[in-house]
Nucleic acid binder design. Sequence first.
RNA 1: CGGGAUGUAGCGCAGCCUGGUUUAGCGCGCCUGCCUCGGGUGCAGGAGGUCGUGGGUUCAAAUCCCGCCAUCCCGACCA
Length: 566
Amino acid sequence: MRLSRYLFSTSKESSKEAEHLSHKLMLRAGLIKRFAAGVYCFLPFGYRVLAKISSLIEDEMDRIEGQRLLLPFLQPADLWKKSGRWENYGEELVRFEDRKGAEFALGPTHEEMITQLVKEEISSYKRLPLILYQIQTKFRDELRPRGGVIRAREFLMKDAYSFCRNEEELVSVYQLIKKAYEKIFSRCGLDCRVVKADTGPIGGKLSEEFIALANSGEDKIVQCEHCGCVAKLEKAEYESLEEAQAELEPMKEVSTPNTRTVREVSQFLHCRPGDILKTIFYQTEKGLIAALIRGDHQINEAKLQALLKVKKIEIAGNNSIKKEIGVEPGFTGPVGLDKYPLIADNTVMKSRNLVAGANRKDTHLLNVNAGRDFQPTIIGDIGFPLSGDLCRVCKSRMEVRRGIEIGHLFQLGEIYSRSLKATFLDEKGKENYFVMGCYGIGVSRLPAAIIEQNHDSQGIIWPPEIAPFQTMVIPTLEKMFKVAQEVCQDLKDQGVETLWDDRDLSAGVKFNDADLVGIPFKVIAGDTFLKEGKIEIKTRREAKVEKVKKNMISQRMKELIQDAKQ
RNA sequence: CGGGAUGUAGCGCAGCCUGGUUUAGCGCGCCUGCCUCGGGUGCAGGAGGUCGUGGGUUCAAAUCCCGCCAUCCCGACCA
């Protein structure tokens, strides 16, 4: 393919719509273009990467006898009404009527549809277990699309579904698919972690996520440096460092004019944020409660809600706090607040001589101690861990890291087969509900994750298996164009995916473009050919140069590609 | 949905505060010609704009005021 006719353009600067590195590089390298918030088109380079990922997925799914199919993007409402999700899925589900007034949704996921299909097609245990999957466009009307293709509204997803006879079979199929996913991600050049996850609106019992480590990822995980335990931040259990067993000092009032936030108080009193006791009020259906946590930690409202066993939890407004407590937030504290349930985080119980609000304007208390100065109603884990907190299992230091969710596995059980009455006959002729699992991969988000982990200052470094093209043939002199064309033809004849940079530009521009786009091998025809009769092959990642005779190029290239895939 | 910010050429920006020499500029990119030819090359010429949108103020609006829309970031939310 001649580059002069290829639909791509590179730029030195990315448009300001991008914040994340992968997003910037995808725009600069001409992989994607945005048409609306969270709606992107994949230009030829970008699309080729998606196609590579798709065929790699197909390859690994073939090995475990997964069968690819394609379900409709447009889904009739009645299936969703049967499963109950027409009402429950929320605003992310785009609903509309056709010209006859029939109700439809744009598929955000396909459990209903696949269950209906299998219900109609399969009636005997002899045909189980069954693994079906598709690679399909989904639409979810996200509150806030972000990070380019990382959280788009329209996106490409690979979703697999398993149908089993019983729980035991589900567990083994689940493990099989989990292994296949590990291979897929590793072939994509991704370093990822498996973490326990929430089941969300999909439902089910066990759920795990694959998280690709990336600084710009939107998910946070904690990882134990010693035992390797990984968990999502919001699910992570932890212990805070044991405080030295300091003597309990007598409580003392201090004047702290205009110091409301933890930072202001710690600066004013020259103490660490961790020496402060933060009191945060929440409104619940059972009334106002006060959550107590150390100043350096954040409250995890989900944990707090679970601990309190309440349905509604909402941070209390400034006005209601002023009315109930008699002081503005920032000077509130647990001492003398016996009227309200005090929910203390474990970290508070372990700390001594904390600084807390005195429930009086511009005043804090020094040396506040749980048990002596106030009695918590409930003690528990209501916070998010920080780097440096300790692992519950092995008591080693944990690190908070960011990542991108690239895969999500669910053991669904019988949720959907029951709601859609999908059954099969077992060996005794008895009717059973299918025991289901579902397994997603965020295909269109994968390029971003891969770029986050595979780039340098020059641009993208695609692992050869998913690079849009394997090689870029670059003539550096005009009189080398013909040689370059011949080399390109030779490579193409030998099945190597090749672009030929026939543009009338300086060599430097061509090198930079090839590097930005991430082509694994540059095949350079220039001075070296004139002097030594040899063509150069330069690798993208290591920048290693190898000189090869012209008639040996395609053979050598095939070897290099083969090596790179292993 | 809460907080913050931005809309001026394909992209990045200046101009706005203090309205009028601004026929709205600059850099990149694009087109033409010459030069250069191994890491974003030099020179010359050129094309390209409803200043997001609707209204208002004014003799006069990119500039001031109000509404709306769009986009981005943080949070909430989320396979």
